[in-house]
């Protein structure tokens, strides 16, 4: 149920002339956990968003499970279901209960029946530790709880790849642990994960490889044990010095 992602020579120029991504290539194997770090404005979120085409590209393509995302026509909606996404701002649907948030897409997009979706939604809620909050509205939950619901909502579509866009950046510090635990769990089950994050501890402990991006380019890519011991004086060294201080 896991699949790989291949980013091929992706470039992205915004309307105002800013080069957000500059010929980025990256291959993520099925079951791999890849963390992307870098200073703000380095293009890491933009890169992640090109994987399910929330961001279009100026050149290049992304293959999801071997299928082209950026040349897809009508099948785009079907392809997007293979990549679940978790946002910095959670983006839960505020007018729906937690359970309805999770079941909406399986019901409307896949046409599944409530009898098959509801038990799945409930077990996902149990898994993220919110089994008793199905009838709550998002506004009644803390940020950490909302983010865990957002993860359950993405998982309900049974994706092959999970994309995390700074999932803990909008959370109070005491809420971060719960969300990271859910993500670790997911990683240990062999889910392919692309995680844009500032949580170096998570990257060190969970990632198979860590990518350092700057100015729309991949500056450095390595396994965590090497990644966190960069050549002194390098840009990565400076960056790590700032975030790990």
């Amino acid at each position: 149920m896991s699949a790989g992602v291949e980013i091929r020579n992706v470039s992205k120029q915004f309307g105002n002339g800013v080069q957000a991504l500059d010929d980025v290539s990256l291959s993520v194997a099925a079951g791999e956990v890849l963390c992307i770090v870098g200073p703000s404005g380095s293009g890491k979120s933009t890169l992640l968003r090109t994987v399910n085409r929330l961001e279009t590209v100026t050149a290049g393509d992304v293959l999801l499970d071997g299928e082209s995302i950026h040349t897809a026509g009508r099948q785009l909606n079907a392809l997007r279901q293979k990549a679940g996404m978790v946002f910095q701002q959670f983006n839960l649907f505020p007018h729906l209960t937690v359970l309805d948030n999770i079941t909406l897409a399986p019901l409307k997009v896949r046409g599944e029946s409530m009898t098959t979706v509801k038990p799945r939604a409930q077990s996902l809620l149990d898994r993220v530790g919110l089994g008793d909050r199905g009838d709550s509205f998002p506004s009644q939950l803390s940020g950490g709880q909302q983010q865990r619901v957002a993860i359950a909502r993405a998982l309900a579509m049974q994706p092959d790849v999970m994309l995390f866009d700074e999932p803990t950046s909008a959370l109070d510090p005491e809420m971060v642990g719960g969300v990271l635990d859910v993500m670790k769990d997911l990683a240990s089950e062999g889910m392919t994960m692309l995680v844009v994050t500032h949580e170096m501890g998570f990257a060190r402990a969970v990632a198979d490889r860590v990518v350092f991006m700057e100015s729309g380019r991949i500056e450095h890519i390595a396994e965590p044990e090497n990644f966190f011991e960069p050549a002194s004086g390098s840009r990565l060294d400076l960056f790590l010095g700032q975030v790990l201080r």
């Binding site: 399910n52 929330l54 909606n77 079907a78 997007r80 279901q81 990549a83 679940g84 996404m85 946002f87 983006n91 839960l92 649907f93 909406l104 897409a105 409307k108 997009v109 896949r110 957002a150 909502r153 993405a154 579509m157």
Partner: peptide
């Protein structure tokens, strides 16, 4: 974006 990312 959240809705579209779910395949809607």
């Amino acid at each position: 974006e959240a809705a579209r990312s779910l395949g809607m």
